[in-house]
Amino acid sequence: MIEKILPEFLTDILKNKLDYNYVYEIRIRSQLPIIVNYGGRYYYLNSEGVGGRDDGSIVTDRKMLEAIIYRAADYSMYAVNNQLKHSFITVTGGIRIGICGELVIEDQKIKSVKNFTSLVIRIPHEVNNCALTAYHFIAQDEIYNSLIISPPGCGKTTFLRDIARLLSQSDFIRNTLIIDERYEIASCYNGIPQLNVGKFTDVISNCDKLYGFEQGIRAMKPDVIITDELANQSDLDAVIYAAGCGVKIIASAHAYDHTDLINKPGFDNIIKKRLFERFVVLSNKRGPGTYEGVYDNQFNKIYIP
């Protein structure tokens, strides 16, 4: 679906000069060379594929940037304005475009974004069974409230997506609700998940976690809620609310390890309450999704790779 948003010559390079399966990210900055994350490393994009800065790297201008965003929005900026206000657009195929530009503010509220300066096109990759090892410890017979922790870019979202898929493959029907605040887990496009999140899964997209948890529990009566990137007190309040309702939670948060996690505002309290019963730590050591370990609610290791 990348051909839907990029100019033909760029699509041609990505699809025919490179192995598209290994293209993870395309970074496009106004008046600067295009950078591609190819197989986990960054390269300059040139007409022959990838190379160094002096290998004829392709430079973009603001017009091309605007055209890409306009296409990504299906020529309907009003339909993506809520996403745009949060600096991203989700496109068919689960592709997400992070956007930088100048915020348009009216009455102290963000109205839109203009004068786009750069964007990052993130191409999702489903890695089936990437969460299988941890699944045995967090959800196989009994679902434990679990927190997946890692620094950015280590595969937390891919992991959560795979957990949702694995839950649907179990012998018991466990209704799963994904609160997909930024369209990262299921990447719904026109209401249809673009990535495999299993057949017992409902998805609420584009809403904050507190609203999603409260309304989702009332409306859908899920057995388990999966959500991404717990970051602030409101997110943690949502988790506490869900736990109080007897709904299991599998979520993720940015942190290097448990020490780092405890130091994050609000998390010390939730850890003291032992709300989370399992912690899965991921890293990028041997590529995204490298297991560092699975821990219980007192951070005792229960699985070491």
Partner: peptide, 10 residues
């Protein structure tokens, strides 16, 4: 003008 702005402006 179609599609080029937010819903309010549209």
């Amino acid at each position: 003008i179609l599609g080029k702005s937010d819903s309010h402006s549209q």
